[in-house]
């Protein structure tokens, strides 16, 4: 489909945005049950697979348990992690420091 006008492009983006809003939670729940308990081994794997996508991995011993929480939630937003991945990584970091 060739988009001739800016109006059509805006319409396409709005449609995409709407699809993302509707699709994201449904697709996620289909692949993974929500609110599973945090798991340290899953967290270690997620930490290995994701942190180095952008930066050198940080040592779990660098921060106290309570400080890791806002850090992992910050990274949830930055890296596009799911809530479950965030809880798993937090568990791993808190158990490893």
């Amino acid at each position: 489909m060739k988009m001739n006008t800016s109006h059509e492009r805006e319409k396409a983006f709005r449609t995409l945005a709407l699809c993302a809003v509707l699709f994201a939670p449904t697709a996620g729940m289909a692949g993974d049950a929500q609110d599973r308990a945090a798991d340290i081994s899953r967290g270690a794997q997620t930490w290995v697979n994701n942190c180095a996508r952008c930066h050198n991995p940080r040592d779990p011993k660098e921060f106290r348990d309570d400080l890791w929480k806002p850090i992992t939630y910050h990274m949830r937003v930055r890296a596009g992690l799911t809530g479950q991945q965030t809880r798993d990584v937090l568990k791993f970091l808190q158990e490893s420091n």
Binding site: A20, A24, A27, G31, V77, A79, G80, L81, T82
Partner: peptide, 12 residues
């Protein structure tokens, strides 16, 4: 609005 979605078989 932003986030992540597991796609199965290790894909995200």
């Amino acid at each position: 609005l932003r986030g992540g979605v597991p796609l199965g078989r290790g894909m995200f």
